[in-house]
Simulated assay, not measured.
Amino acid sequence: MRLPIYQVDAFTDRVFAGNPAAVVPLESWLPDAQLQAIAAENNLAETAYVLRGEDAFELRWFTPAVEVDLCGHATLATAFVLSTLLEPGRDRLDFVTRQAGTLTVTREGDLFTLDFPSRPAEPVASPDPRLAAALGGPAPSAILAGRDYLVVYDNEEQVRALSPDMGALAKLDRFAVCATAPGKGGVDFVSRFFAPAQGIPEDPVTGSAHCTLIPYWAERLGKTTLTARQVSARGGELACALAGDRVKIGGKAVLYLEGSIVV
């Protein structure tokens, strides 16, 4: 059996930047073990599987190790493939997911905007005591938590200089760790994201993390429209907005690879 596969760099306007995701359109669902094996073989942060439903598309995301509840960059990559290559001209796509509800992506020119749930983090009185040392940086100014730890630093330089111990981070009591700080040069905030326990040591650009970052920085800065940058080695830019209990996450994407899988 041959399956089409596309590799897209998301949250960037050029190849070799942003976050690469694989997109695999399906005519019917394969067994979960096969979906996971393909994602492991791809060895990208996420592989997205998309299936046309009756009224919307069904969408699932897998890291090399696990299925995840929400993924931004692979949703953006999927919308790019559908509206650019498979159904050119579409400016709205609805995706039914298994844990995050229905997600909508709209397109205006080369900008894709994700409509995702807001996931505010709360201050945590007793974070995992191994957290600060595992990140390999100075003491943070604040630690909050939701699905992930949100670790706040004083400035961008501290976030860029983090030298995390991935083995130690993988043992923490949360899904992942997001480090953030105020940005500069027209950028409201920066971040890095680490999820070694999920098969992703450092994610280049993490849309789902901005479900937590956006409400935090919107409240702290007193504004609902923000510009963000993930300062990983590849880097990526995101146009962000808080809209009640939803967040809007905008970015561009570019095709890197088109081919087929033989299974």
Rank of each mutant, 00 (worst) to 15 (best):
S191R: 00
I214K: 11
L144K: 13
G244R: 05
P164G: 02
G244T: 02
A181W: 03
K248F: 06
Q198V: 01
D203Q: 01
S163D: 12
G222S: 05
G137R: 13
S208D: 09
G136L: 11
G167S: 15
V205C: 04
P138L: 08
V152N: 05
P127G: 11
P164S: 02
I214A: 14
G250P: 02
F193C: 01
E202D: 08
G250W: 08
V152R: 09
G207Y: 09
I249C: 04
L226K: 11
K184W: 00
R160S: 07
D173P: 02
C178S: 12
K184C: 02
S126D: 15
L144P: 02
A239L: 13
V190W: 09
D148M: 08
G136Y: 11
V152W: 03
G136Q: 11
A243C: 09
A241V: 02
Q198K: 02
P182R: 07
G244Y: 04
D128G: 14
A197W: 01
A161Y: 12
R147H: 11
A176L: 01
A134E: 08
L150C: 06
R130D: 05
P127S: 09
G146Q: 06
P201C: 12
F175A: 15
P215R: 13
P129A: 15
R229K: 13
L150D: 03
R160D: 03
P196F: 06
T206E: 10
Q230Y: 14
G137H: 11
T206V: 12
A142I: 02
L242D: 04
R174N: 04
P127N: 10
L238W: 04
P129L: 15
L169Q: 13
F193W: 07
I200W: 05
G167H: 13
A197K: 09
C178T: 14
P138E: 07
V151W: 04
R174G: 03
P127Q: 11
A161S: 14
K184D: 02
D188E: 00
G137A: 11
I200F: 06
A139C: 05
C240Y: 06
R130C: 01
D165F: 08
A132E: 14
T224Q: 15
R234N: 10
G186Q: 03
S232N: 13
L131F: 03
Q198E: 07
A133F: 12
A134V: 13
S126E: 15
